[in-house]
Design a protein around this nucleic acid. Sequence first.
DNA 1: CGCAAGTTTGACGCTGCTCAATCACTGTGG
DNA 2: CCACAGTGATTGAGCAGCGTCAAACTTGCG
Lengths: 261, 261
Amino acid sequence: MNDAVEALRPSNPLINKLGRFVSLKDDEQDALRHLGRNARSHSRGSDLIAEGDEPDSVFLILEGWAFRYKHLEDGSRQIMAYLIPGDLCDIRIFLYEQMDHSIGLLSDATVVKIPAAEMLDLLDRYPRIERALLWATLVDESTLREWLLNVGQRNALQKISPLCCELCVRMKAVNLVDSSETFAFPLTQTELADTTGMTTVHVNRCLQILRKDGLIRIGRGKLTILYFDRLAKIAGFNKIYLHVDGPPVEQKLRSRFSKHM
Amino acid sequence: MNDAVEALRPSNPLINKLGRFVSLKDDEQDALRHLGRNARSHSRGSDLIAEGDEPDSVFLILEGWAFRYKHLEDGSRQIMAYLIPGDLCDIRIFLYEQMDHSIGLLSDATVVKIPAAEMLDLLDRYPRIERALLWATLVDESTLREWLLNVGQRNALQKISPLCCELCVRMKAVNLVDSSETFAFPLTQTELADTTGMTTVHVNRCLQILRKDGLIRIGRGKLTILYFDRLAKIAGFNKIYLHVDGPPVEQKLRSRFSKHM
DNA sequence: CGCAAGTTTGACGCTGCTCAATCACTGTGG
DNA sequence: CCACAGTGATTGAGCAGCGTCAAACTTGCG
């Protein structure tokens, strides 16, 4: 992918995402676009990094989906996050001596591997980008807490439906939901099961209920949410935890905060 | 609590904790001890901060236990972290406009409320403290992921036992486990239930098994782990996620890393 | 066409939940 | 010193939500 192609790209998902938190100036947008110059295609099923590896780079998803997961000795797997276009895996990932989880690809994907040094340079040069990225990290943490709440306290239907709501909201934030509330959804029922701590059989039965109730349409790698409000209601979904309105207005964030976010 | 008293205190749990990550110089130790000058007693059952509140300070636990939790409309509660002496709630907590969870006290506790400005000054002045604190934050995130794994994938016995192992390891790190492997454990079975996503009845039955098998002794606010290795084995507990050996050796951490951790 | 991956269905049963009662311990006031 | 209340632990009986196992079906693809 060369610079000419980049320039043509209507928008970069990272710019879409961070643009909601801070208004990015031209040079900042250029810097983000520039990150994509080393984008590479990876195929579905491969790991970007695996448990036990020593991390030295940060990954940025430009196209496709990745997910964070952990295996248990008995072969079971817990999925702990989905990364969609515009998402970075933890920007401090290279501080671990050893990964305690893996990051795999759910679909074919375009990913940028950003060496630690380059990432640090970017953060140093563009404090507003740094601020936005670190804010995004805080939101990721919130999301993890919400997942724990779902898995720990809710019944089967209420485990699946908030996930649909969340992913819809997040995909919207990067302009990847079309006018009919449909978006790419590469999870198989196996992934839904490993995310919610259920079996695929039971996931299947729950999806049938949601479909029968006319709330969603799912299949062929796409999800359509037919009645978001009704789904959100049975899901007990409240998007506060996504802090979608972004961090405090910039003025409130004295610049010294940024490096501590 | 005045400075004279502070000086007498044999050790401060925060110093114990951070001292495992970086070797603290005298002035750094003093700065940490100095934080405790405004310590206040709080009584069990009160919240340090509640969902919806606008945070403006960071809390440091000196004595007693706190916990992070979230309520659901139906009254159920998910506990998402325990904070023991030496733990700080998220040092970036004041960046949220609104808390999306609460922090409550499990026991009477001595807590320092550190205003954002003071916290930021400390981090600015002592980069090594900053580095250690931000490292601790990374570990907290790892822990949350491990909890999700436990709650999502494991059976009842395997949900409770790793929690015992984890808390033992963490209490040891701040010198709060005595020679007979006994430590303060103020959780009731209700809290164990709300942590693991089980009912108190079933928690009770599992504890009986662990007791009958001679693995633990629990009650009266104390927990004794009689055979750590055996318990860890049935728990599937692997302390890697606690990254107890701390961050990469300091040399490896170029100083510029610190402000981005 | 044939295989692989993913989805769906059915029968059955276990793990962990519900409801409700009882017990144990501690602190309090008379 | 005892009655009493409150909190937490324990027990039992019954049951349901979700898991297990296994087979069939559907879809996409080389």
